[in-house]
């Protein structure tokens, strides 16, 4: 067994500007926040970001001006508000946004994960979502076609293979066997489509523990390049059975970023003004706050 454990700073140093990065969060759940913060600290530029339903992890990167292209199925911070930075960047056309749906993003990753160059789907037909893809820089990624067997109309989607896929999980061993508890949206397809796969784990466990529940392993070690052990690495988003989302901090975030001129203030205080995720956690309330957010063992939040 190999020890693949690295710090988030070490991993992010290996990512060139202009990379295509996929993040595993969904709205306010299991966001790759420690990764987004480090990408901002190291000022990685001109990124392509892909995600099924973009959440806080991607909104931070867009707000910091690091993203030039977004490939997304939708986006929200649930009842805390919209993804203000993403929506504003789309309105000002400072990002080239390719808008899909949840299933079609998942299928693009699935094709990539299966080693296929394309995949047919029955969504997006007869919609303006498809018309806009066909009219823009995504035209090379979509194609209408009739089934050669039945004649039924399909949309073909080009496979999506991110340069680096990040996913935040509850449990991983030193070798990268990763287990996800609760719903997992397009995490498996997104991770396995990645040319490089990095997991961020709440808890680092011995392989012996993984071997007790092998059916829970969603991403197997042979696909994983590095394991980042970062407890509370998804704060202020939720990690099921570990901790709830931090409603106070999510409100504070939205209060800042809903006005473009206050985005730098948030980034300066909580990201650029902290040297790593531990210092960030101290700044947002430290051990006392994290303990308040800790999940109830029965409820899981």
């Amino acid at each position: 067994m190999t020890n693949k454990v690295k710090t988030v700073a070490e991993v992010v140093q290996t990512i060139p500007d202009g990379s295509h990065i996929a993040l595993g969060g969904f709205a306010i759940n299991r966001g790759c926040i420690a990764v987004s913060h480090e990408l901002i600290r190291q000022q990685k530029k001109n990124l392509t970001l892909s995600q099924g339903v973009v959440g806080l992890d991607t909104d931070l990167l867009v707000g910091a001006g690091l993203v030039s292209r977004l490939i997304m199925g939708g986006g929200s911070l649930d009842r805390f508000g919209p993804v203000h930075c993403v929506n504003r960047a789309r309105e000002s056309r400072s990002v080239d946004a390719h808008d899909y749906s949840s299933l079609t993003i998942c299928f693009r990753y699935l094709a990539g994960a299966l080693g296929l160059s394309f995949i047919p789907v029955k969504s997006l037909l007869a919609s303006e979502v498809l018309e806009r893809l066909e009219a823009g820089s995504a035209a090379k990624d979509v194609q209408r076609m009739k089934c050669p067997f039945t004649g039924e109309e399909y949309l073909l989607l080009r496979a999506l293979n991110p340069d680096v896929s990040f996913v935040h999980v509850q449990v991983a061993d030193y070798d990268g066997n990763s287990q996800i508890h609760g719903a997992r949206w397009e995490n498996e397809e997104q991770a396995k489509a990645g040319r490089r796969v990095i997991v961020i784990t709440e808890e680092l466990v011995p392989t012996e523990y993984i071997q007790r529940f092998p059916e829970k392993t969603i991403i197997p070690a042979h696909r994983v390049e590095a394991v980042i052990h970062q407890p509370f690495g998804a704060h202020p988003t939720a990690v099921f059975q570990c901790y709830d989302f931090d409603a106070d901090h999510l409100r504070l975030y939205v209060d800042h970023v809903k006005r473009v001129e206050r985005v730098p203030e948030y980034l300066k205080t909580y990201v650029l003004g902290t040297k790593d995720h531990w210092e960030y956690l101290d700044k947002v309330g430290g051990l006392r706050r994290m303990n308040e957010l800790k999940a109830d063992r029965v409820l899981g939040y």
Binding site: N29, L110, A238
Partner: peptide, 18 residues
Amino acid sequence: GVADPRNFYRATCWTSFR
């Protein structure tokens, strides 16, 4: 919201978009 873990409680299956 849909991503709130309150939605996961006492489910019969945790699965994926796919």
